[in-house]
């Protein structure tokens, strides 16, 4: 977003990324590349390793093996705050928000790092407007409904102004209207920022996706255009079939 980087250098590149927990191999030698401004959907059955992969990308987990590069810079094993400063924001699967602070303060803390107070305020107000939280800025986040808490978290990620946004099940716990609004918001965000979105809701995936990566048992099963992925028999077997059943 900031620098015109030559196409040759991907925004994000994982090579042989592996995460072991004792005997469990949650992520197994994953090679993954994301271009600047790309929107990618990541799907896969429960326990496929999607959230673990996100944690490796954001420094919450140090990979057991392999490499992670951001615009060519090796960030394997770097601290979460270091990776965040390199322009990566994440909405985690289990919401990470400041329950005891107001909606406004949640977003303000996110907007305020290394910015003047005035621009932090401006970003906060714009983001609250964009995510349609202006009506509840004074409410304590701990008292909000699950869907609203999800949006507060999305707002903090946006206020951080990252170049790459990871969303782990952003539509979970949302009403149908909220899901539609979230899909719309994701497409809108993608005009300026790259995203990787993990979701189980296939209707939602169809609304936003072009390229889909399918995880299964820690490995990439398929990576293709959404239509071909949905038609793929192997994918149906491990994932879609189960959901239909």
């Amino acid at each position: 977003m900031k620098l015109p980087v030559p196409d040759a250098t991907p925004l994000l590149e994982a090579k042989g990324a592996t995460m072991r927990f004792g005997g469990v191999v949650a992520v197994n030698e994953v090679d993954f590349t994301l271009r600047e401004m790309e929107l990618r959907c990541l799907i896969g059955p429960n326990g496929a390793g999607k959230s673990t992969f996100f944690k490796m990308l954001t420094g919450q987990l140090k990979p057991s093996a392999g490499q992670i590069r951001l615009r060519g810079e090796n960030v394997t094993g770097a601290e979460p705050h270091h990776i965040a400063r390199r322009g990566v924001g994440i909405k985690t699967q289990v919401p990470n928000v400041f329950n005891g602070l107001s909606v406004y303060e949640n977003v303000f803390v996110a907007a305020g790092r290394r910015k003047s107070r005035a621009s932090a305020k401006r970003i906060t107000e714009q983001t609250l407007e964009r995510v349609r939280l202006t009506g509840i800025t004074g409410r304590m986040v701990g008292q909000l409904a699950h869907g609203q808490r999800q949006w507060v978290e999305i707002a903090t990620v946006l206020a951080q102004e990252p170049d790459l946004i990871l969303l782990d099940e952003p539509a979970a716990g949302m009403t149908h209207d909220e899901v539609l609004r979230t899909a719309e918001l994701i497409r809108e965000i993608n005009r300026a920022q790259a995203l990787i979105v993990v979701e189980h809701d296939m209707q939602f995936i169809r609304m936003i996706a072009t390229t889909v990566t399918v995880f299964n048992q820690g490995r990439i099963l398929v990576e293709d255009h959404v239509d071909r992925v949905m038609a793929n028999q192997a994918v149906r077997d491990v994932y879609l079939g189960k959901q239909a059943a």
């Binding site: 705050h81 965040a84 400063r85 924001g89 990470n96 400041f98 329950n99 005891g100 303060e105 803390v109």
Partner: peptide, 16 residues
């Protein structure tokens, strides 16, 4: 205060 509330989130926002 944000760290008291949720240290993980603070770090994911880029604060040490």
């Amino acid at each position: 205060v944000a760290i008291r509330e949720n240290e993980t989130r603070v770090q994911l926002l880029g604060y040490d």
